[in-house]
Amino acid sequence: MAISVVAIVVTRNLFSVIVLSGAYSFLMATVLVALDAVDVAMTEAAVGAGVSTVLLLGALHLCKSEEAKPVHKPWLPLAVSVSTGALLIYGAWGLPDFGDPDAPIHQNVVPRYMENEVDVPNVVTAVLASFRGYDTLGETTVVFTAGAGVIALLRRRKKGPEKTREKA
């Protein structure tokens, strides 16, 4: 997976980048399955390999497919990224161990969720739709808003693009 990430960073042809990110999200989904997040993996596979690939391609075929050569030296961003990474790794030593059942995350509300008072075997669905119904309503609204935003941005007006191009 790391290889594909590095390849995504280095590659300059955007078509190849999109293909690589599709492969990356398949691998990501497999990792998520290994971490028991079945629903998340399904979503990630559906989104990463299906929809966002198509969307990126759709945007790309309206734009240029080759990235320009960078004009700046990459050292400053690299330094910023690496130092952020070092800081985060330093911080990560304070986190609980991987798979530790006594970690705080397993102590609070989750036992109540797992009691399954809704009688739906898939706890993720139960929590998503019932216990956290407001979150999901908000999520649906965000999707709706994004759709509306895209419609507003990409709706075809007569002579719209030419005018702006002349001004520029």
Binding site: A29, A41, M42, A45, A49, G50, L57
Partner: peptide, 19 residues
Amino acid sequence: LALTYGLLNVIGVIAVLKF
């Protein structure tokens, strides 16, 4: 999940080719 992967794999490949 495996079935989902299979379906989407094909769609992804053909989408890239088309575009």
